[in-house]
Design a binder for these strands. Structure first.
Lengths: 343, 343
DNA sequence: TTGAAAGCGCTACCAA
DNA sequence: TTGGTAGCGCTTTCAA
């Protein structure tokens, strides 16, 4: 291993001078700087992370708690991770991955062992047992999601209420006269993932504004059978004519393709006989058959905002923690595709 | 921050005794152990990772280079990451994420800064510029994938040759009399990802064994248009009757759903009018319409084997590095679904 | 403008 | 069975 002492010896300076050249925290003569820098290059020196962390109390690592594990919805997760990793690298930080099934223990481990300088916590439930633990940690924690009680932790998330409005507004603007909201399987609804309620609220409020009737139907069970049953209930509940004026909003990301398949299987063509708007990542929406009009989850925007807030928290002195938004909601975006009429 | 000195003070022992209680590298009297352990519990002490790494030269971190970035095939990536993370945690190690777009610099950074004890490198190209860099690193590197020249680095991968055989054998066994292999877009073929050739070889060899004609068609361009064109060529090249005896093997994971859609769009039903076997993750195969018979990439098996080899490398003394398989190929598995006949 | 040295928290050696 | 202590490689203070 190459140390800063090796660099110092080669450059003919003291070890502390090498450190100052690297940190820029002291003025260095041009000649000394040149010699040190060429020694660094020659030896391909990079500072030992453990030693630096020990002395500076800064690891330059961000802990990321990802929702891996049984029954996690990991569709659309990668863009979050990718964006977070990229933002970290832009600031010469690295990402340490912790999986959700470690629960609160993962959080305390990160903090107590000084494995990272800050933590990003994803997949927040409305009443998330990790929040009180996170709030007492010695390192700052950012939530991607919106719990009932953030306990002072900054939150970043999509504005799901506006997302619901957006979907319904689009259907209203394209001539539909009734709305149906196809929701999540009962078990998911029970888990109280917070955005379920927020999206629903936005959608129903928008329908009311436009004076449109709005039915809300959940899936009685998980899987294609649940989707099928929910769809039948939707088609039964309205009047029986399929006249192209029913607008279906699919709230559950994982149900979007099954709904399209089930609609086609009943002999209706999405986009002509009835319209479909899904709440799902763009990458999924472009891949469905047919490509579905969707409201995006904006993983990149959400992640970027979370990381911006995180580095602000890390940079400024902790006493002056004002000017950090406690809750940042990202504006959703609707992209029309084949399952709703143009214009 | 709680240190081992705090624990020592509370337990009334020396700081080194605390260290020995934690490591178990010295016999400790029952009474002392009890006092130290209760002090550890009371203070919720966990050892500082930086200090431990500095002294012990072991970070207890595994670097994982993931194929994020432009034009990366990230479908089916999550099970790899999840399994690798779980295996690491089983040995009280953590995962540090590095993205592919850092290239070789990411590798040297991990090693030179002593950020990790070992590296897992995914998404290996046949002539991968990172291999020579990885081979000279001070930390062990495991490849998931099979380059032309591993330069002594252990490799773990699916046995793609056998995967090709498996797909064709299944089609032969279910009464098909001709095979077509629908491959990748030209740009991908050109990038020489190594498994392309291996799979193709296995498939054509198996077809020859069964005495079946086997056409090989690549996609002229990326996207649904490329798939469509390739499919047309397949249907044109054989005789023109669609008699349920044509077996189509789709090699490109991302083309599997588009192929099914295109087949249906031409008025044929997959599984009745012609059969389709895809090389893709199970999670994708169950989600297509209709669910497609697939040969799995076995991400969990591959990852587990890679991590087992990695920890062996880490545990044993480095001189005795025999008994490590230089190349481990995982046996693929075929699951019949709706797109091929039963039995 | 530069150097010497203390010390971050831990592991492991040497003594007792 | 236990304690004292050197020292891992770095950052930063104090001196020159």
């Amino acid at each position: 291993m190459v140390t800063s002492r090796d660099v110092a010896r080669l450059a003919g300076v003291s070890q502390s001078t090498v450190s100052y050249v690297m940190s820029g925290r002291r003025s260095i003569s041009a000649e000394t700087r040149r010699r040190v820098e060429s020694a660094i290059a020659e030896l391909a020196f990079q500072p030992n992370a453990g030693a630096r962390a020990l002395k500076s109390q800064r690891t330059r690592v961000i802990g990321l708690v990802v929702p891996f594990g049984p029954d996690a919805d990991t569709s659309g997760l990668l863009p979050f991770i990718e964006t977070i990793a990229n933002c970290a690298r832009e600031q010469d930080h690295d990402i340490l991955l912790v999986t959700r099934d470690e629960g609160s223990a993962g959080l305390t481990r990160l903090a107590a062992r000084s494995l990272c300088d800050a933590i990003v916590l994803m997949d927040i439930e409305t009443h998330d047992a990790r929040i009180p633990v996170a709030a007492r940690l010695a390192v700052p924690v950012i939530l991607i999601g919106l719990p009932a009680e953030p306990l002072g932790l900054p939150c970043v998330d999509l504005d799901f209420e506006q997302a619901g409005r957006l979907a319904v507004d689009h259907l209203a603007a394209t001539g539909h006269d009734r709305i149906a909201l196809l929701g999540h399987p009962r078990p998911t609804v029970a888990r109280e993932v917070n955005f379920v309620g927020r999206f629903r609220q936005g959608a129903t409020a928008a329908a009311a504004t436009h004076g449109l009737p709005c039915a809300v139907v959940d899936q009685p069970e998980r899987g294609p059978r649940g989707v099928s049953a929910a769809l039948d209930e939707v088609l039964r509940s309205g009047d029986h004519t399929i006249d192209g004026r029913l607008g279906l909003v699919v709230h559950d990301t994982e149900a979007v393709q099954p709904v399209l398949t089930a609609v086609a299987g009943r002999g209706h063509r999405p986009g002509r006989d009835l319209s479909v708007v899904g709440l799902c990542p763009d990458v999924l929406a472009t891949g469905t058959t047919p490509p579905v009009t969707n409201v995006s989850l904006e993983p990149r925007d959400v992640s970027r905002r979370a990381m911006r807030t995180l580095f602000r928290l890390l940079d400024r002195d902790p006493t002056a923690a004002e000017a950090i938004e406690p809750v940042e909601l990202i504006t959703p975006r609707l992209t029309r595709r084949r399952t709703t009429p143009p214009g």
